[in-house]
Design a protein around this nucleic acid. Structure first.
Lengths: 207, 207
DNA sequence: TCGTGACTTTACCAAATGGTAAAAAAGAGA
DNA sequence: TCTCTTTTTTACCATTTGGTAAAGTCACGA
């Protein structure tokens, strides 16, 4: 899609460093305020660069956002990708759930970036949902279905299983503000959340 | 908080009608684009009124948004409020889950309005989270804990149970764009989703 | 050390956007 | 019908914001 990403961009050391700083700053700002709520000035300040300087590295606000989404999509799908057909079904699924919970705890900004974008209709995701997410989703649905058919898991709708794993795990990152109000002791909350989610899916999936 | 809501505002028929139209339009626009992404012009057009005319009814963009949030909070908490201490625990919880799924299906705009707001740190919710949500949440947590202690439910962390119910049910409204890409047949998806979620929590909660 | 290309800053600009002032129009009661 | 109030429109305005032009500054190889 974007000509900046695909044909092997050779970049100087300064370019690499500054592009990275901009994307890091943009992740901070976009994930907190959403696309429209973020300004180039905010990103510039967070990156420690001037606004025109930022526009030297990216053609515009939208390109920064699109670049971020595209670059993070890969990392975002990785935990699901790792789910292995050759492993033990329940262990594989619980491993996946654990990795997703880890991501919510360690990378809430990334989660919120996607959440903001998708809630508003994913207007800047291009075909990433169809070409990146959908094929992997379908593949893993088939895998889970095979496991169910083989009697290795309790009967379950694979698509809605994956969706409910996303829902429960990402909720802790996306709605952190709310969780913090309701459960003030956040450290204890994380341990209890982990426990709760694992128990829930274990009971659902045990054959 | 806002002087417009509390001291019994007497309004003419025209005022009532136009304020309602504005709030309806604002719900449409805000839930789709978030606060910063929405403009008074968009709201005005959706309401069929001119921008200054809208500012005759509300003091500004923020007041519209705050009014919406405050007004919808009540309806938003209602399904949980209805959960009755005197009923059968499992049936009460499943009833709650069913009502939440209904709300996600019938009122996705309201769900997304809150989702947008909370993801971005709830900067315009004032104390509504603490004064509206928290007390009810705590009360129902105690109720669920009592049920668990009485052996009427499987042992479960009440707080995380409620949170996971919110997560799974609201996900279908908030991330509808994504669900639609992954499960094209949306009608069938709703029935299967309902089924899946009920099964999940039944297995979790059955004593 | 000098020149050339890569990077940065300064000074802007046009459009969008939240909001206001005041005149005009429309209702409603006497 | 006349008058007073409520509602709506017209014409603006100041600020914010994404973006540009062009002049400077820096780094590095010859």
């Amino acid at each position: 899609m974007s000509e900046a990403t695909h044909p092997a961009p050779k970049r100087s050391r300064i370019q690499q460093r500054n592009r990275k700083r901009i994307l890091e700053a943009a992740l901070d700002v976009f994930s907190q305020h959403g696309y429209r709520g973020s300004t180039l000035d905010q990103i510039a300040e967070a990156a420690g660069l001037s606004k025109p300087n930022i526009l030297y590295y990216f053609s515009g606000k939208e390109e920064i956002h699109v670049t971020l989404l595209a670059r993070l999509m890969e990392a975002w799908l990785d935990p699901l990708e790792q789910m292995d057909a050759k492993g033990d079904p329940l262990a594989e699924l619980l491993g996946y759930i654990r990795r997703k919970m880890e991501m919510s705890r360690l990378y809430p900004r990334e989660s919120r970036l996607f959440a903001n974008e998708i809630i508003q209709g994913a207007p800047r995701m291009g075909g990433n949902l169809e070409t990146g997410l959908k094929p992997l989703f379908d593949e893993k649905c088939r895998l889970i279905q095979d496991w169910v058919d083989a009697g290795l898991l309790a009967p379950v709708d694979p698509a809605h299983l994956i969706i409910s794993i996303w829902a429960t795990t990402q909720h802790y990152a996306d709605f952190e503000t709310q969780v913090r109000v309701l459960i003030p002791d956040t450290d204890a909350a994380w341990a209890a959340a982990q426990q709760h989610v694992e128990t829930m899916f274990t009971k659902l999936l045990a054959p």
